[in-house]
Design a binder for these strands. Structure first.
Lengths: 194, 194
DNA sequence: TCTAACTTGTGAAGAAATTCACAAGCTCCG
DNA sequence: CGGAGCTTGTGAATTTCTTCACAAGTTAGA
């Protein structure tokens, strides 16, 4: 299967949010032109993006809104419930644990870890903060599919190494530093500075 | 002047954050190769990115860390203090008003507006929430250079229109909808869904 | 001064993403 | 059934972005 450009995936997620909007308004079909107008792109772009994954429309008619949004959710991995842990119970970590948008999108935060003894055992957004020493054991046990890193830049690489070793395949990092990981582990860094 | 790609600007901001790191460690010079390694790109890319704005390095030597970071800050508009207002005192608006990272980067939040009478006059992160009815008057008076929109999607376009009419030139929106504005007004939409 | 070792800045080549343009499929209506 | 009016899906053309490759500038050391 061919590699899909990141920009394509980003746009698909935008299309999905418009589809949800359109669906809520009760429309049953839509066209690449509609989606393009809403998303600030061109209809050819929309069709090209979708064509990477198959053909979901009917010529002359457009796309079925419920069908296309369900296909997009599938493509984007949002039809699955992902088990997520947050590493780092500082300000960013706590804000993420509280963020409701995660759960809405199928990302279920079921664990928060920290190394600070004064934080371990305390409550953070309804979850008990666990000792980071148990993290790799829990990961190895298959407790999580995704880890979100909200730790200082200087500790991030070491945690990535441990997670990769324990068998985790997906990491989202908020640490402002370049992270290295084996090729079969996907690491994505979010730049808070914008 | 030639148009600069958004991807270039995004990388410049990454380089700057590494430079700040390097500066804090006390190093005086760095090379395109260093920056590339840290940023997960190539040295040719780094040099190409910088070359759009001039030549800041010395052949054989590399770049002066303080000079390059100050030039980047200038290019990215971070050497200026921007006066920012937040429109919408809901959850996102309040979180943004509280967010310290803004001030660090030269974005000074000096006003928060909302249309809800139960919120007007209340305190939000040290600022009194003002009546949105006064927003265009304040904008026209030159009180703000940038507006951050944290309002429901259905109200966003109307506010953009009012701000544009009042003479504002830069808007950052968190509303999940495509916004239209005159060509001389820059609107940037942040996709919370990731 | 001369050579070795670096590193920048930049045309040119190569790769990737976007846009164009059109054949082909679908629906409606007379 | 046939034509008009839409809209998709997709090769080909075009534009944009990235990487290559190397001349030229700089420093250090002999």
């Amino acid at each position: 299967m061919k590699r899909i450009a990141e920009s394509t995936v980003r746009r698909l997620s935008i299309y999905l949010s418009f589809l949800e909007d359109i669906e809520a308004r009760g429309a049953l079909t839509t066209s690449s032109d509609d989606l393009a107008r809403l998303g600030g792109t061109t209809s050819a772009q929309v069709r090209k993006d979708l064509s990477f994954f198959g053909s979901f429309g009917k010529r002359g008619l457009g796309y079925s809104v419920p069908e296309l949004s369900s296909r997009l959710r599938e493509i984007l991995g949002l039809s699955h419930q992902w088990r997520v842990c947050i590493v780092g119970a500082g300000k960013i970590g706590a804000a993420l644990a509280r963020y409701a948008g995660f759960a809405e999108r199928g990302f279920l935060v079921t664990g928060v870890y920290d190394s600070d003894p004064t934080k371990i055992g305390k409550n953070s957004a309804g979850l008990t903060v666990k000792n980071i020493a148990h993290l790799d054991r829990d990961v190895a046990a298959g407790k999580y599919e995704i880890a979100v890193l909200a730790v200082p830049a200087e500790n991030a690489q070491q945690i990535v190494d441990a997670l990769a070793k324990a068998g985790l395949k997906a990491i989202l990092s908020f640490a402002p530093t370049q992270l290295n990981a084996p090729a079969d582990v996907t690491v994505r860094t979010v730049n808070m500075a914008m």
